[in-house]
Nucleic acid binder design. Structure first.
Lengths: 241, 241
DNA sequence: CACTGTGAATAAATTCACAGCC
DNA sequence: GGCTGTGAATTTATTCACAGTG
């Protein structure tokens, strides 16, 4: 009974070059593992969900069943930032949500830029505009003359030449990179020069950025290709094993 | 000197519920770690790249510098599937590429379905149509009457009611789920009933699927939120530490 | 001599198990 | 009794280091 790990068969995230923990990084991330940070948004999401259903106290196992993570893992993750639960009871959802927002820096508006307004770029803009509050795409860039000057979701597309000038002045530190593969490396260099510290990269390219910059690459083709492995026709089917 | 881990500061992928290795899974994935599988597409990509530059023999360190993974890791990953390099020389790029394609099941056409033709769904269709050869989106579904019957990239959108009927008949095993969060869980159940074995999920929801199904969730909001942490204004800047 | 393949060592992440508390 | 917080145990993943080989 206790051995059964249940059907949460979610796929441990796409491997990316691991980062050198604690090497010249600032005080805020101390020794917080990156995996912990990557789980916080999911906690945020379920806390929000539960609150809107009127739950003001939540347990780690409740959060676990909604996120698919184990309750111990959630408790351990949260404990990195201090003890904000109550033994015997659980966590105050509102307090915990605020706390996590603060940790992620989402307690104040975060402005971001997006470079590359093709298929994926446009989708991200529209999607984000619909979703976020504190994460706010503020600047769009492209090099295509057919796009420059037009708008997506009410936001004007500027020419990528202006990138350094605009971003530097605005103190933008987070950017989405959705340019074609060939342009990705150069563009990332420019983003870094413009002061960007974190990049969500959709180009199927490894970006070799300086140490103080964090890149997260989401490559749709790679995701599908690795899923193809698990979708292979190969065995007995649902009852298999 | 040897301690310097260089600037490849890529962010270890978003955490997802880990899957129960070797529990009732089929023979093909044996004990191959999931992280290994998730790196294979990157190897595929650089092998392709290098070949088109005329390189027919590649070393693990060459591949390492292009992917950001260490050469040992690459060698170890490849060794799970047998020894197809030549000591002292390297790997034959073409052979290795074919081999990896075979492992992933990309040596024959893989047909897939996409459900949810909103922003992200449309972007994925257009993006994929431009990119893949063996990964081929064949069926699109939505429930929006305004979309059903129209086309994206030359592919007709069907009503989601037809999902089970169409997919079951066609033996589709891989699907992209790009429906709104509220609909994601139900839709995933239907996909699984229709025989789908692997799902690329863009909805910000944890899907609780049976054990023989693999889900990979890509949540753009979560990605940005966790990157916000690293983009935080907090320390000395580029020279920090 | 450069490069693979791989056990052994290490590091990192997860799970166990239980004390402490409501 | 239910739940948190956390060291200890375990499992998983990565890196080291080197023997083997064309």
């Amino acid at each position: 009974m206790s051995k059964i790990r249940r059907s949460l068969f979610e796929f441990s995230r796409t491997a990316q070059p691991r980062f050198p923990q604690g090497k010249g990084r600032s005080v805020i991330e101390r020794n917080i593992p990156d995996v912990t940070i990557s789980r916080l948004p999911a906690y945020l999401r379920v806390l929000h969900e539960l609150q809107s259903e009127g739950e003001s106290i939540v347990s780690s196992s409740k959060m676990g069943s909604l996120t698919g993570f184990s309750s111990e893992q959630i408790r351990k993750d949260l404990a990195y930032f201090g003890a904000f639960g109550t033994r015997g009871l659980g966590y105050n959802a509102e307090v915990l949500e605020d706390r996590i927002r603060g940790i992620l820096g989402l307690d104040r508006p975060v402005h971001l830029a997006l470079v590359g307004c093709g298929n994926i770029g446009q989708a991200v803009v529209r999607y984000s505009r619909a979703q976020h509050r504190h994460l706010d795409i503020r600047y769009l860039f492209d090099v295509d003359p057919a796009l420059v000057g037009t708008e997506i979701a009410g936001l004007e597309i500027r020419h990528a030449d202006e990138l350094e000038r605009v971003l530097g002045g605005e103190g933008i530190r987070l950017a989405v990179l959705a340019v074609p593969a060939e342009a990705a490396r150069d563009t990332s260099v420019r983003l870094v020069r413009a002061g960007v510290r974190a990049i969500l990269n959709f180009a199927p390219v490894h970006l070799d950025v300086p140490e103080h910059v964090v890149v997260r690459t989401v490559d749709l083709t790679s995701e599908l290709e690795s899923l193809a492995y698990y979708a292979r026709e190969n065995d007995a089917g649902p009852d298999g094993g």
